[in-house]
Amino acid sequence: MKRFNDDYSISDVMKEFIKTSNLEKGLNEVQVKELWGSLMGPTIANYTTQIDFHRNILYVALNSAVLKQELLLGKQKIIDLFNKELGKELVKDLIFR
C-alpha cells in the first residue's frame, strides 16, 4: 500500500468513500426516515404506519384521516423543514397515504 503525504480529514475520506461506493442514496433514505420521528414529534410518529423515500419523494402512511388533512395544509413547510435539517435540497415532494 502506497502512502501519500497529503493531509485528508476523516470527514473528507468518508464522503469520498460514500460517493464511490454508491451508498449515498441508501444513507439519504435512512436519514429522512429517522428525521420524521424527531422533527414531527412522538404524537405524529405514533399515527405513522409507514415511511418510504424514493426518487426525492417522501411517502408517509398515516392511520388518522384528520391528522392527514392537517399535515396536508403544512406540506410545503414540512418539506422546507426537512431540507433545512438535512442541509441540502433532498425532499422534493411529500405524499400522505
Rank of each mutant, 00 (worst) to 15 (best):
I18G: 04
K77E: 12
A65G: 15
V60K: 06
D52E: 14
E24V: 06
K75R: 15
Q31A: 13
D80P: 02
N46I: 11
N83D: 03
L67P: 05
N63A: 07
M40K: 06
K19T: 09
Q50E: 15
K88V: 02
F53L: 09
I79Q: 03
N22M: 04
N22C: 04
P42T: 15
D80L: 01
Q69H: 08
Q50P: 00
T43E: 11
N83C: 02
T48S: 13
R55P: 00
K84T: 08
G87K: 07
K33S: 10
A61M: 05
Q76K: 13
E24N: 08
I51P: 04
Y59M: 09
Q50A: 14
N63C: 13
K88G: 00
G37C: 05
L72F: 05
V30N: 07
K19Y: 07
N46T: 15
E70I: 08
K75Y: 02
L71N: 04
F17A: 14
E34K: 12
Q31K: 11
T49F: 00
D52N: 14
L62W: 04
E85T: 12
G37H: 11
I57Q: 14
F82D: 02
L67E: 10
I18Q: 09
K25L: 05
F17E: 08
G41Y: 05
L81C: 07
M40R: 03
S64I: 10
E85N: 13
L71W: 02
W36I: 13
N83R: 02
T43V: 15
E34L: 12
E85W: 01
Y59A: 01
E85C: 05
